[in-house]
Amino acid sequence: MATLSEKVRRIRREVLGLNRRNQQFMAHLNPAPLVALVDHKARTKDVLAEHGLPVPETLGRYAHQRDLPRLTRNVDQHNDFVLKPARGAGGEGVMVIAGRSNDRLVKASGASLHVRDVVSHAADIIAGAFSLSQSRDEALLERRLVADRVLGAFSPGGIPDVRVVVIHGVPIMAMLRLPTVASDGRANLHMGGVGVGIDLPTGRAVYAVWRDQEIALHPDNQQPLASIRIPFWSDILLMASRSADAIALGYFGIDVVIDARLGPAILEVNARPGLSIQLANHRGLRPLLARLNPQSAAGLSPAARVSLGIEIVEATERETAP
């Protein structure tokens, strides 16, 4: 058993803290205009789509109240969809319609509502009811993603996503975020979601935390988390690497959802990814960052950067292995 001072030394050596993250990465590597871009979901999607990256299909964007008749028409064309604020945070204001029953729409939660309810929700979004900092917002109509069969088994309450942290264009650490009943269907660790550390070379689960504590079984359905292996893993790593070319942030995270029909798609880009990913992986970021030379990564292709990330991880693991 390590003494407390040994533990403290190890934490200091390995863990990336908020102070260092803010100064060394966010302040230096993330220019403000790009941060503002990724805070706007619709524009981010546009940029990613331009670079050929898969994103959930946009069915419509509504920036003004006068656009709402168009929303009514668009809603009629689809059986399931998601209506969300372009600049919302934490999943607030997201309305998920899973299907139809007669002329009524049925929400993922089972409640049924009328088309005019959807329109009035969009009006609220535009008026800024869910916008936390800005007063006006844009409503976004998206195709609904359905959880892939493999991962869906681990998240009865919502859609899981894979967070990949990309630094200097190199995917360096990843975790799977599983919604729980406690997190109210949202894959947010603060809200009570499960964070599953993913081995970067293989896409296998290596560790998991729930409320900052290690767990082995999903808290809702007792599925063994260690058996998880992320499908489309190499695709996801490549997507992460390529999105750094689309949006030139030096330090960011992408949230990838694996849709049952479409495969992986980038749901969101986050310019301030949290540090809990280290807990989920049971590894600090600093030993990895020490091996990551920005100059050597600069000229590489996306695929080469994925390889570089995997090399760095493997080299670090070899060194720390007993």
Partner: peptide, 13 residues
């Protein structure tokens, strides 16, 4: 991050 420095390690390599 104290848990990270605990001896128990990842489940698999």
């Amino acid at each position: 991050f104290l848990g990270l420095a605990e001896k128990s390690d990842r489940w698999q390599r």
